[in-house]
Nucleic acid binder design. Structure first.
Length: 887
RNA sequence: GGAACAUUAGCUCAGUUGGUUUAGAGCAUUACUUUGACAGAGUAGGGGUCACUGGUUCGAGCCCAGUAUGUUCCA
């Protein structure tokens, strides 16, 4: 069959993905086989494919394809999560473009637009995964707001509430004034900001309650947020601070609004920061809030939910917080309260979603009491029931779980699962499955029949639905005990990013034990973070994320998969560079060229070659390559079992490029325009097929294409081919593998000598050997001669004059050619070798002359050193003789 | 401020319980080769006080302590 010059990945990728889908290879239903289940970490429904997804999903696809080929019933479940904040932002933006204000819509109207948006643009990412070759069971595509899934989330809320694990409480939270929503700590990004530190002096009262003139004595505080002084409730000083000891118990006056506030003592205050006096603003700072609670201070909430100043501020009411800051500084200056203003660099929290400065704010929120459900999840990882790869994340997990904090699960958004709490006009509430259930509970709890109820406006944190993912994709809650969940759950491997170990992984483990009594998965593989070649995280702002789909179009999905994986050492961040794609493309090109060679041979294959036609009389190359293939298969299995995917791919890369192409194919290659023995060709094809089989999980498209081109008719597709589990390394393989090492080093050494002596490739040489083990050399001499263009190979006991002398292993060789031998170059070469071995020998002898070493070291270690010594001495002796022979 | 992890060739990394040929791989680099599957190639080479300082040991890239630097997480 005619084969194109290069692999046409565009055509092959489309063809094979369609073919695999048509044959339903990715679809799974429960049967008698062992399942292998992976659930995809659901990407945002708003998302588009980026490098992180590429890495993550390539890894999952490799695991799943490998399991499928190993005879397991592989099931990889796709889906998306509704990403409440991100999606709502997109919808609001769409509405704005149409000139619609969100505030002008009812909740139902807004949700209609949101669903419209989701149907139209949502889930593009799933289509993109097909381009990457992902073998997902598309029939099982799930969404966290599917009707059953939605109901399960509501059920879980009810259940946890009835168990007393969910409570409602006023707490200091991170508030996003643009999205008008609470954020979890994890959604706040701290950035270094150039700000100002304002030193402000407050007027004091003396112990009799008389105002002291500002010029006479005052107390100076330092703040970066002068507008919040309107919410001051106290000034705190360190009890040991001599400067302020006399003021403790006195009062100060908040400038501009003349509020009288106490001066209190608290050892939280650092004496060496700012002025040593700390203003306490309980409504607007996490630490101040705690101090406020401790000292029973009043709370003045001076900000509205949109970040403007509130009525309680008394001044600048309705003005944005940053404008108010500018104005109040002017007013304070005018009133003589500003002592100095310094430049100050500090960490400020920004909203991950809207990038506005986050406000610490008091708010009534729903919380999960995490301590009540975390303990099985902690011990599961500690005891190794769930294994983390790499294991270092175990520590991190343990630390977080042991210091776990309550989880704020309410979000001030409409897109998501609406909190199932109903209130009456007097603020009484019940948690229920739906409104009629709520009415029933109102009558039970409060004796009220047919109350007028209003459901909580807020919806739940997205993670509160995605923590059910591993079992609810199989309807484990909505249809408990069904045949799918019984078969596929617990799942096998989860592949995700370490960034969401707490957001998601830990919570899935908790939910798994809480709702199924079982772990959700056995292994968690944490990928690295994809960074650019300068080590920066990829981000939209930096514009350093490559266009993944464009890359797939340019270079092919296989090359992209290779590129990302080869750069991805287990558990480390990876510095991704476009060059690694090219390495992938080159590798595919290499495979393609090997295919072309095989096709060329097919045209010239013959049975029963005559002696003149035959250029290979031994089966040694086939025996060797089989042993080598067995060895590597076993190595790769071990690496894969330890999730060392990058190394497994490197191992296969070397096997194909070096062992198969550079050695094996060269060894069996017929002479120029000579025929090849059909039985040799058949062997090569079988090996090529096995190589494609091993490589298929990594590079699915090119392997399927090559596999089908190797024979006119393949019985099965490689995608679903079952590997032979008995094809493994055997102890007996060692002999021939060792012989091959000797052969390779002999070829390399002789080629090197030829180059150094300027012997042209075309010029034949005669090889003479003085060897210890003739049997070994006899089995490989045909190949040796072929590879170094030797016209003869003879054994000799005596030195041969006027030859190039080599010591290979413990054997001596003489190369004879018509070329004149440059003895001085030879001598230099040999002397360099001697000095290397002499240095080596010295270090060994130093050890052996140390009596304590000989006494204390294990006998086999001493024995080994003696052998090293003997080997080195013999080598040196042979090299010296070679020099002597040069004359 | 606290904690975890890391530091090995120009870059990215291996290096399994301390001894296995005076440290290995890929990429990059240098020289040479070139009508024969493949220049997207082949052959050969150069390149490292294993961050630093001590300690344990007959013996340390590996174990221990400290220092420095970096990354991440938590305050």
């Amino acid at each position: 069959m005619e084969v194109s010059k290069n692999f046409d990945f565009t055509a092959a990728e489309a063809k094979w993905y369609r073919h695999w889908l048509q044959n339903k290879y990715f679809e799974s239903t429960p049967d008698e086989r062992e399942p292998y289940t992976v659930v995809i970490p659901p990407p945002n429904v708003t998302g588009i494919l980026h490098m992180g997804h590429c890495l993550n999903n390539t890894i999952q696809d490799i695991l799943v394809r490998r399991a499928r080929m190993m005879g397991k019933n592989a099931c990889w479940v796709p889906g998306t999560d509704h990403a409440s904040i991100a999606t709502e932002a997109k919808v609001v933006q769409m509405l704005r473009e149409r000139g619609i204000q969100k505030a002008s819509l009812s909740r139902d109207e807004f949700l209609q637009y949101a669903w419209e948006w989701k149907e139209k643009y949502g889930g593009i990412i799933l289509q993109q995964l097909k381009k990457l070759g992902c073998s997902l069971d598309w029939n099982r595509t799930s969404f966290t707001m599917d009707p059953d899934y939605y109901k399960s989330v509501i059920y879980v809320f009810n259940d946890l509430y009835s168990k007393g694990y969910i409570y409602r409480g006023k707490r200091m939270i991170n508030w996003d004034p643009r999205a008008k929503t609470a954020l979890s700590d994890e959604e706040v990004i701290f950035k270094e900001v150039q700000g100002k530190l304002y030193f402000l002096r407050y007027q004091l009262e003396d112990s009799n309650g008389t105002l002291i003139p500002l010029e006479q004595e005052s107390i100076t505080i330092a703040t970066v947020r002068p507008e919040t002084i309107l919410g001051d409730a106290a000034i705190a000083v360190n009890p040991d601070d001599e400067r302020y000891k006399h003021l403790i118990g006195c009062h100060a006056i908040v400038p501009l609004i003349n509020r009288r506030i106490p001066i209190i003592a608290d050892d939280y205050v650092a004496t060496d920061f700012g002025s040593g006096a700390l203003k306490i603003t309980p409504a607007h700072d996490m630490n101040d809030n705690q101090i406020g609670k401790k000292h029973n201070l009043d709370v003045f909430d001076v900000l509205n939910e949109d970040g403007t100043m509130s009525l309680d501020a008394q001044l600048y009411v309705g003005m944005d917080r940053f404008d108010a800051r500018k104005e109040i500084v002017v007013a304070l200056k005018d009133a003589g309260h500003v002592v100095k203003i310094e430049d100050y660099t500090h960490q400020v929290g920004f909203s991950e979603r809207t990038d506005v400065v986050v406000e610490p704010r008091l708010s009534l929120q729903w919380w999960v009491d995490m301590k009540k459900i975390s303990s099985p999840a902690l011990s599961a990882v500690k005891d190794g029931e769930i294994n983390f790869h790499p294991a270092k994340f175990k520590n991190l997990y343990r630390h977080w779980m042991e210091n776990i904090k309550d989880w704020c699960i309410s979000r001030q958004l409409w897109w998501g699962h609406q909190i199932p709490a109903w209130y009456d006009a007097e603020g009484r509430f019940v948690v229920a499955m739906d409104e009629s259930d709520a009415k029933k509970k109102f009558s039970e709890n409060f004796g009220i029949t047919n109350p007028s109820l209003k459901q909580d406006e807020d919806c739940l944190d997205t993670w509160f639905s995605s923590w059910l993912w591993p079992f609810e994709v199989f309807k484990g809650i909505s249809n408990p005990g069904n045949k799918d969940v019984a078969y596929y759950y617990p799942t096998n491997s989860l592949v995700t990013a370490p960034e969401i170990i707490f957001f998601w992984v830990a919570r899935m483990i908790m939910a798994g034990y809480e709702y199924t009594g079982k772990k959700p998965f056995s292994d968690v593989y944490f990928t690295g973070i994809v960074r650019d070649s300068q080590g920066r995280k990829m981000s939209k702002q930096l514009g350093n994320s490559p266009d993944l789909l464009g890359m797939i179009d340019d270079i092919g999905a296989d090359a992209v998969r290779f590129g990302i994986l080869i750069a991805s050492p287990a558990g480390n961040d990876l510095l991704w560079d476009k060059a690694s794609n090219e390495q992938g493309r080159n590798f595919i090109n290499k495979i393609w060229n090997a295919l072309k060679l095989i096709q060329l041979w097919k045209e010239r294959a013959k049975e029963n070659l005559s002696v003149e036609e035959s250029t290979l009389t031994t089966n040694w190359p086939h025996d060797w390559f089989e042993s080598r293939l067995r060895e590597v298969s076993t190595e790769v299995d071990v690496l894969m079992d330890h999730f060392k995917l990058s190394e497994a791919l490197k191992t296969l890369y070397t096997l194909i490029w070096d062992d198969f192409c550079s050695w094996y194919l060269e060894w069996i290659k017929p002479g120029f325009e000579k025929p090849i023995d059909a039985k040799h060709l058949e062997k090569a094809i079988v090996f090529f097929e096995l190589l494609m089989e091993k490589l298929h999980p990594f590079l699915p498209f090119v392997t399927e294409e090559v596999y089908h081109l190797l024979r006119d008719k393949q019985e099965v597709d490689i995608c679903v081919k079952q590997v032979d589990p008995t094809f493994k390394f055997r102890e007996s393989d060692r002999i021939i593998l060792n012989q091959a090492e000797i052969l390779k080093s002999a070829i390399t050494a002789i080629r090197d000598a030829r180059v150094k002596s300027g012997i042209k490739n075309k010029e034949g040489i005669a090889v003479f050997g003085t060897v210890k083990d003739k049997e070994v050399w006899t089995s490989i001499q045909e190949l040796l001669c072929k590879q170094v263009n030797a016209i003869s190979f003879e054994y000799t006991n005596d030195p041969i004059q006027d030859t190039i002398q080599l010591v290979i292993g413990g054997d001596r060789f003489y190369l004879k050619s018509d070329q004149e031998i440059d003895t001085s170059a030879q001598r230099k070469e040999l002397e360099a070798e001697i000095s290397y071995y002499q240095g080596f020998l010295d270090s060994v002898e130093k050890k052996l002359s140390n009596e304590r070493f000989v006494q204390n070291a294990k006998p086999e270690v001493v024995e080994l050193e003696r052998k090293k010594q003997a080997d080195a001495m013999e080598k040196i002796k042979m090299l010296q003789e070679s020099i002597a022979n040069l004359g």
